[in-house]
Design a protein around this nucleic acid. Structure first.
Lengths: 146, 146
DNA sequence: GTTCATGCAAATTCTTTGCATACCC
DNA sequence: GGGTATGCAAAGAATTTGCATGAAC
């Protein structure tokens, strides 16, 4: 519990520092997002937020999500043929693997791949601002190939 | 010219084989897509198609694009905060680099990265169905760092 | 007390769909 | 000729926005 509390506290501080007001709605959303281990969309966040702040409107959720994204608190995800999903911006960058059968989302990271991306961009005269990598996968049948 | 003509022919054949009718609208769109070196969206394709088939409707463009995607003729791209864009499905898979300043899209490929992706997925018990990798980049200022 | 954020409803944007007519095979 | 594709207009889904009221600092 205190893990996500600390995260929420950190996010709140960042928002406060940037001068934006911490309303009940925003505080609730920050808490929910800090606690979330999944990748909810705006409607789902609205549903969850309504427990803490009955009557919160979906517009507020959308507006808050945009604000949180701008301030680096959350990451907006856009998987194929799906609505926008969100996750908190944690310390370590990671990418996503989506099981096309179950819809399950698995996070992963690969420093080797990131290094290659950087090298590749550099070789073409660019530097990477950010990137997106999604692997649409399926569980391997039987045992891993011998 | 004959290069994209050959491609268009190949696509048309694939469609014919799968039993879907080749109407004037579809033929025009296949031609346009085979010739396109950029990444147009549905509205832009509609504009281009209207030269060959005046009166073609945007719905038909959308419907045709879905059909072409289903039959493996085109690839649907979804860059950040942008509408869907399309490119023809060529032999060689590639990914995209988007210049965040100019909006320019550059294609690239990296067999090393793909190999790492495969290995990574396999190590987690998955096989890759397809993937998406987008690098949002900015031109390196001055000379490459010494 | 000001100013900024909220809620509501309406507007926007992109895309899909129902239906009568037209066209491909 | 038969059945699928088209055009039109309307519907849909996700997200954004204008405005009057309410809440944070």
């Amino acid at each position: 519990m205190s893990d996500s509390d600390a995260l929420a506290e950190k996010f709140t501080q960042a928002l406060r520092d940037s001068g934006i007001r911490i309303t009940r709605q925003r505080a609730a959303l920050v808490d929910i997002i800090a606690q979330s281990e999944d990748h909810p969309d705006a409607v789902e966040l609205h549903r969850r937020a309504a427990d803490a702040v009955p009557g919160i409107s979906l517009s507020t959720v959308y507006r808050t999500l945009s604000a949180l994204e701008e301030h680096g608190v959350i990451q907006r995800l856009q998987f194929e043929g799906d609505t926008a999903r969100f996750e908190h911006a944690d310390l370590d960058h990671h990418d996503h693997m989506i099981d096309v059968d179950s819809g399950e989302v698995v996070e992963f990271q690969s420093e080797e791949i990131e290094a290659l991306q950087d090298a590749l961009a550099a070789s073409m005269g660019y530097e990477i601002v950010h990137h997106r990598m999604e692997l649409y996968v399926r569980k391997t049948r039987g045992k891993p190939k011998s």
